[in-house]
Design a protein around this nucleic acid. Structure first.
Lengths: 201, 201, 201, 201
DNA sequence: AATGAATGAGTCTTCATTCAT
DNA sequence: AATGAATGAAGACTCATTCAT
């Protein structure tokens, strides 16, 4: 479970972002204090404000990083999957599951703490999340159009797919029964079944 | 969206529980203050402590009520659905979706705020949640045994079903495009598809 | 260590007074709450106010009972000791020590918590305490006048005697090395020595 | 009555410690609020917590300072008194009385409020207090061994001496009848008499 | 970029006390 | 005499944030 953010080219910034990710992941946005973040980042409380003007902005930045990374991975996975909707959906789901498992806290924060953002910090995040969901929506639409996904709800099924993959973060434990690979495999099948694609027996 | 808790036979208790549900639902456990709860309940801050010894205990009680109600509804729905696994799953999912829509905040709190509970308040809740999930697990197991659910992952699919239904709470808005009935219908089909039951074309 | 206050002929009054004594003894006047007292007395919080109009008054009553009892015991001991100052002092000290040991918390409260009393509750207590000290002052004065106590400070030595005996309460433990009898014996000798009375070799 | 703690080399620390000493001295540990301390120290309530993590810890630090200072003074006094037990005891008592008078509240707090300390804050204080008493115990033992103190209770008399000197704090008023010098003189004699040393007529 | 000290508003919780029954 | 419910003030402590250095 490597750190999500590697380097930003600006002093302690990456350490602070990763610390915020951990803190918000463990205690939630309101439960974690700036002192918690500072402690995890190994810097002083007041130094945080040299990088981010407020706690909300810090959360916003963390979420932006997480979403950008997830989006990039999904794009890459889909591109490498070729043109057919079924393998595209399969690979997108597998990538999503892998990201969820590898960066569970990032996913948790991303799903749960956005609602504590208001004003100008909020909308870019919502847009980014919609873009991520849009990737799935496109695949489902393509599959429905070509007749290979026979779900009667092609306009809504993508949301179900995304919800299903994201919810793994709420219960997954690294020492659990299922490996990341098994989880990815299972969910790929769940999602193909959900959109009513033909399945190998 | 009627109040979840009607009356407990003890002074202001029901009003406080419902107020806590609303407050935790809107701002999260850590974001909502006991003052918020008191204001919503129409009583004084200190009077809260005549009913619940701590904020955590208050949350625990709220969650217990929500889970008990959900569990009871699911039981009833499953019983009335007869013996075949497919209609049983269909009715369970529909009941779950209806509960999620009608008591969205209860569901949100139930999914998101349990992790702020520790010590003796936590375990009964986890057990109750497992019991709810167990209802679905039984149905899936029955369907898999009888061959009507052909999912290769009968031991894990119930969790996916529950996650899928619960996640509605994170995005549903009463004024959205889909009615509760449509939502229930869609998810019933998603879930039957997910466990690879035969579907009417 | 029997309860200090036996019965007052008024419902739960004695139980409340003894409970207050214990509570104030253990946690101090400000550290103990009326709830603590109620719990120890086995009654309800609000019922306390049927007997005593305020926490301060409750403390005042407790102190009055303790002082009255101590004063009575000292009077009796002195009277039974005859007319000579040396045996009178000896018996007074022994009685004081015995009371301190038997009702340690009463003594602790009496020494330490009076200062939290103000207004009309305070002065009667101070007067009662002065009366107790006056008993010793009289004996020392008598002994000095008759030449048997040769202390150069007859006007001040009584205070030292009283302080010395009372301070036992601050360190005495029932399971300690010294029995009540030994303690009484030792202090009788300390005090006779302090006033410079002739001592048996 | 100069401030007990001069400077600690860390911001407002000395001011806070002295303020705590005054506040606890006047109202007791439980009667004084952290706001009281802040007001006396001329700083904000929250700033207190930049120096001491809790009220109990603040009390513990205050007590440590007071005990260290007392112990140092006693050591010095004893060392300068030469080798004979009688002058050593005399000078130790005088130093103790002077400290009690000069830092009455420190002594009061030290005697009365230790019992509100629990856990790891408590034991170092008890040990320090025992060390102080140990100084007197050594002197009494030495005097008893050399035959100049003829008390039959050499193992216990030191406690009486310490109690006697400390109790001055409970009644002393700066505008009272006796000066500090007189008080020191009187108690030196009380204590020598108490251990049954030969006294100048 | 980095820190320690500082602050005012806010947190949960407990307090002594009152009131209706 | 006795209780359970209620309350406003106050308790210790933490918060996000700022400022001087």
């Amino acid at each position: 479970m490597a750190a999500l953010i590697r380097d930003t080219g600006r002093g302690n910034e990456a350490a602070i972002l990763n610390a915020a990710l951990d803190a918000f992941g463990e205690k939630g946005f309101n439960g974690a204090s700036m002192r918690d973040v500072a402690r995890l980042a190994g810097t002083s409380l007041s130094n945080l404000y040299n990088y981010f003007p407020s706690k909300a902005r810090l959360l916003a930045e963390v979420l932006r990083w997480a979403n950008d990374e997830l989006y990039a991975r999904l794009r890459r996975a889909v591109e490498e999957a070729g043109d057919d909707p079924a393998p595209r959906l399969r690979e997108a789901v597998r990538a999503y599951v892998r990201f969820t498992v590898e960066h569970r806290v990032a996913m948790l924060v991303s799903m749960g703490e956005v609602r504590y953002l208001h004003g100008p910090d909020r909308e870019p995040l919502i847009a980014a999340r919609d873009a991520t969901e849009g990737l799935f929506a496109d695949i489902v639409a393509q599959g429905a159009a070509s007749g290979v996904f026979r779900t009667p709800y092609p306009a809504d099924a993508a949301r179900a797919v995304v919800s299903l993959c994201g919810s793994i973060a709420t219960w997954y434990r690294p020492d659990g029964r299922l490996s990341m690979g098994q989880l990815a495999e299972q969910h790929a099948r769940y999602c193909l079944a959900l959109v009513e694609a033909p399945l190998a027996a």
